[in-house]
Design a protein around this nucleic acid. Sequence first.
DNA 1: AACCAGGCGCATA
DNA 2: TATGCGCATGGT
Length: 277
Amino acid sequence: MNIKVNEYGVCVESVPCLDIGLCLDCGQAFRFRETEKGHFHGVAFGRVLDITETENGYLFENVTEDEFKNIWKPYFDLDRDYEKICAAFDDSWLIKARDEFYGIRILKQEPWEALCSFIISQNNNIPRIKGIIERLCESFGEKIGENDYTFPSYEVLCHKTVEDLAVLRAGFRAKYIIDAAQKVKSGEVDLYNLHTMPIDKAREELIKIKGVGAKVAECTLLYGIGKVEAFPVDVWVKRIMSELYPEGLPLCTKGIEGIAQQYLFHWRRMTQEFQTV
DNA sequence: AACCAGGCGCATA
DNA sequence: TATGCGCATGGT
């Protein structure tokens, strides 16, 4: 990895296995879009982020070296050796998924945003999840750009009522968002120390929240806490498991089940969409 | 126009 | 412990 600072921001080059477009649009984050070819725009960690593809890397626009190192490098999981991980896949389906979607990495999102986003995701589809989250941010986040808003904090949301959240059209999930915000605020759920706990303890902690079961807990641990051994099983992964792995995941995924899951999830979902369109 | 969506809580046995 | 149903809303 080669990091260069110039007047436009920070350039990252020669990162094996990095496709930012894929990372941002494979069902793990919901707030970024490709505004024009090779240009990505969104908000994370309370900041607007613009990224442009370059010859052999990416330009993080208007970002200082410190911001890059402290926020965006961890966000895109750039210190993990995905080349090595991908090379170790010895299973034909994983290899297929990895080759077709080379460059997916697991984003390390802000824990509250990850928790709240995946509460919203339950029994829902991705386009509508994005819509609800967009309305959540516009309604309760802070305006930090022309059309950009931060993800609302749990401190703000813990005082809201389901009536307040009606504008989101989140349905039965509204009360879950409030319960999560209240339990994080009160400390009943110690969201910001989950990373220090054994993963089973962290799971127990998360499912204390109404509307958080095994799946949402795994997503929070994987995408918000950086636990790559967390393994969320949704309807798509259920299909994958019954169709391809009735005996369980291959051994080469040991300890990085969440990463394998992301390749398989996106691959399965994309191939399905091709068939139905 | 039905069926389904990155599930979960709750009642029932 | 294990199953099955209802849930709000809207994408396909």
